[in-house]
Simulated scan of single mutants.
Amino acid sequence: MIQTVQSADGTTIAYELAGSGPALILVGGALNNRHSAASLVPLLADAFTVVSYDRRGRGDSTNTPPYAVDREVEDLQALAAAADGPVHLYGHSSGGILSLEAAAVGIRVGKVAVYEPPYLTGGGDDWQAFVDKVRSLADSGRGSEAVEAFFRHAGAGFDPGMTRAPWWPALVSLAHTLPYDLTLSADGGVPADRFAGIAAPVLALHGGSSDSWAAAAATAVAAAVQDGRKNVIDGQAHAVAPDAVAPVLLEFFR
């Protein structure tokens, strides 16, 4: 059943609950909505009340421009306030960055796990040119081109045949939120000074088959926080399999 909370700026955030136990909020990355982790939810629901939500501008959540990272942090604060006691956070990709930003401003979190937050991915003029290109395409209504540009730059691989796949329109419908995720990545560096205030235990994960930036990002995150650790999930890449990451999350959050 869909439930909603109101964020500080009046944005409606839609979410669903599954299972029982301490609250564990799943924070999705680029082009994800609350359904993207549907295969992971039942693997965690025996131990936790799993909260799957639509980030602002996605699915059944509303949107209030202009975008700012602080507004997305307030969305998480509203979700956490609706839970009973401190919440755990698991963020995938840019959702990992958002989870860390939330912990840095003092949301009541128990533990935070992040999988391949996209830091240390180059930065510099090339990065800014990429961000500007995606934002321009998305803002001008050329969503399909924005998603293609994102895939090509992110190293996810792009085949023109993807645009004819039944799931492509769903990605294009979220293209306007790509600049949000790119804003979260900022200049590609881990904000160590800000994250030094995170006291909650943090587990930074990466896949053994991922590109080298993923391990570097996980290492930098674990070093930046007060109680950080890093782990690798062998055989996995950025699109980590639910049955591969779930046991790691269960062990950490328990």
Rank of each mutant, 00 (worst) to 15 (best):
D60N: 15
P242K: 12
S212T: 15
P247Q: 05
E74G: 15
A129Q: 14
T121E: 11
D46S: 15
G95P: 07
A244H: 12
V245T: 02
E72T: 04
S210E: 02
S39T: 15
A156K: 09
S212Q: 14
A241E: 13
G21F: 12
V5Q: 03
R71A: 15
D132L: 10
A68Y: 01
L24N: 02
L137V: 07
A237D: 15
L44Y: 13
G189F: 02
G124E: 09
P166V: 07
A165L: 13
D187F: 10
L171S: 07
R152A: 13
S140E: 09
Y67A: 02
G189H: 09
A165P: 04
P191C: 04
A23E: 04
G91C: 13
V114M: 01
E16Q: 15
P160E: 10
R71M: 05
G123R: 09
A246K: 04
F195G: 07
F195M: 13
R164W: 04
L40Y: 06
L120E: 09
V248I: 10
I107L: 15
D70R: 14
A246R: 05
Y119M: 04
A154R: 05
S210V: 01
V172W: 04
Y115P: 02
E16P: 12
F253I: 08
A214T: 08
Q3L: 06
L100Q: 01
A149V: 09
I97M: 12
A102D: 07
I107M: 03
N231A: 15
A129V: 14
A165G: 10
P42R: 06
A192Q: 09
P247E: 08
L26D: 01
P117I: 06
T62E: 13
P65Y: 02
G189C: 05
G19I: 09
G96H: 00
E101Y: 01
V73R: 13
P169C: 03
L203E: 00
R34N: 04
G28W: 02
A241C: 03
D159L: 02
L249M: 05
G208S: 13
S39M: 15
A224G: 04
V112T: 08
L120S: 07
D60R: 15
F253D: 05
S20W: 00
Y67G: 04
F253S: 12
A204Y: 00
P247W: 07
F252M: 11
V51C: 14
